[in-house]
Write a protein that binds this DNA or RNA. Structure first.
Lengths: 335, 335
DNA sequence: CTGTTAGCGCATTCAG
DNA sequence: CTGAATGCGCTAACAG
């Protein structure tokens, strides 16, 4: 409730001196500074964010936007990212706003959501691959960073995992085990991570002279349910695969459930892999061979990039998080 | 970038008239209103939140605080709550701030976090049971609601699940199946949900004339790991229980993992139950008998209560979410 | 129905 | 080193 005015009165100085002390200006005598500091302490004065924002035209708030309800499917992910992000931003005096867009809303609703100057910048979580969303957002002129997306042309900053690398690790491992007929359960078509993993799968097959088969690719949506359905579909094929790569751990866990209901043994009858290395990956039976991504590091990098964008100095850039193969017990050697 | 000033100029009216149109005051001639509306449209004018907040002394922001890192353990939970909460608040023109307190921080750090007038109210997620945190927060004078906590004396508003009811359902079911020697894997001591579930367990045993045994209670922390350890500990007892109640699904899933590593069959050798009915509960094998809580509804109620608190009319009140027993296949009848 | 005045709390001028 | 004036964008309280 106390304002600079009150502090100034109590410390017998002017408003300006108080302001200077608060903003750490060196041009204040130590003694005066001390007096002001005590007054601040006594009144438990806290600067008013609105007034500051009004004057400085900066809210010191960042918004994070989860574009679609479907992203709740990957909750563990989101939370981990948000926590780290929030911690990093706070160190720099920024706060994090949460904003999930409903299915009916699009990027054009963002001004209404955040455009009143409530945020200085935005984090866009897994925007569509087509680039319309990011283009629209760029047109708005609000600094932003895309998380779990990738800007090929560096027209915006982004943090993404190195999906090509991850898939390469995974496929090399599977081929080393002797697998040739490998099924794939993909994520949503419009997402970058999903698309890149599918591309990686196809590329790795081709590199080893294995012809791609349309039947061997099932289109899922990251959910447990779609993993279940994917496993059923692939194993129901006339010639089922000897291994199935799921685009994320969650779908793989759905697949494991399906295997049990179907009486198919993993890895005896079919090998499977996931992606992400969520907590459950090691707590499910069989424990899941997967690709680990350091989400926390992703949060740190996103924070770094958005701050960079706010400063406006550097050009947009993309950071990719290195993946790591985690071998557990969901695959067997055909040899 | 456009301000009311620009709109006023373009529409050939005064600032005040613009303000009135924006705030929907009826005291404006239809024709004038129309003219102003067009100017607003043309300039794509959006009111400035900071200026508004400065004048009205309301930020139209609500903060949600996750008091401890350990809450990341229950991520699916948090996300579901946040999403629903955010959607509800947005309908009323409010935005949601995220703020996780690190382990070193306490409620007294909240002013620094949010106290600059950045928020009008706070949601406190699962505060300690002792009530110091809530008492401190109340002392700050900031309206708040505790989520997944319970105010016995209605000194603050809270939303919580009816743990007594949930435990009663669960224990009745287990007793009906013939179980008498029942183990319990508890959550953290200081949390309300955790404490109430443990109390419920003890009460239900006593009500049926079964003596409580200290050895049969293992203190966990909601995590998969602690569930694993709890299962090991309880089954390692000289006389292991015929059923184990886990305070949440996550620990139960940890327990299932332990059972497989130990070669103990569920439910043949021991029955288990969880609490929460998270998505994985039905996708694990054996599928988990548990208690369902409608987290989304919790979010709706939390929004309702905080808005009530902001309005300042009604007295604080507590809402409890009705639990529901979900029987699946992790328990067997001893008969 | 519409316009004028004033002030919310802060920080950037520019003078002392 | 410190202070006085000024304005950020908006709206409540008064005029007209």
């Amino acid at each position: 409730m106390a304002s600079q005015h009150d502090v100034a009165k109590l410390a017998h100085v002017s408003l300006m001196t108080v302001s200077r002390v608060i903003n750490g200006s060196p041009k204040v005598r130590a003694e005066t500074r001390e007096r002001v500091a005590r007054a601040i302490e006594k009144l438990s004065y806290v600067p008013n964010a609105a007034a500051r924002a009004l004057h400085s035209k900066r809210s010191y708030n960042i918004g994070i936007v989860f574009p679609r309800k479907e992203y709740l499917l990957i909750a563990p992910f989101c939370i981990e990212l948000c926590t780290e992000l929030e911690a990093q931003l706070r160190k720099k005096g920024y706060h994090l706003f949460l904003g999930s867009l409903s299915d009916e809303e699009g990027v054009d609703d963002l001004p209404a959501l955040f455009g009143e100057g409530k945020v200085d910048g935005l984090i866009l979580f897994a925007p569509d691959r087509g680039g319309e969303e990011t283009a629209q957002l760029a047109a708005l002129g609000l600094p932003f960073v895309a998380a779990f997306a990738h800007s090929r042309d560096e027209s915006f900053s982004s943090v993404d995992s190195d999906n090509a690398k991850g898939m390469s690790l995974l496929m090399a491992y599977l081929f080393g085990l002797g697998h040739r007929r490998i099924g794939f359960v993909a994520g949503p078509e419009r997402e970058n991570d999903s698309a890149e993993r599918l591309e990686g799968y196809a590329r790795e097959l081709e590199a080893r002279g294995v012809a791609a088969e349309e039947d061997l690719v099932y289109r899922g949506d990251w959910s447990l349910e779609s993993g279940y359905a994917g496993f059923e579909a692939l194993m129901g094929l006339g010639a089922p695969p000897s291994a199935i790569v799921f685009s994320n751990d969650q779908m793989a866990i759905g697949g494991i459930k399906a295997s049990q209901d179907l009486g198919v043994r993993i890895p005896d009858d079919v090998s499977i892999t996931g992606y992400d290395d969520i907590k459950y990956a090691s707590f499910i039976t069989p424990s899941l061979t997967t690709v680990r991504q350091d989400i926390g590091l992703g949060g740190v990098k996103v924070a770094e990039l958005i701050l960079e964008r706010l400063a406006g100095e550097a050009a947009p850039r993309s950071i990719t998080i290195a993946p790591e193969l985690v071998v557990r017990s969901s695959c067997r050697s055909l040899a």
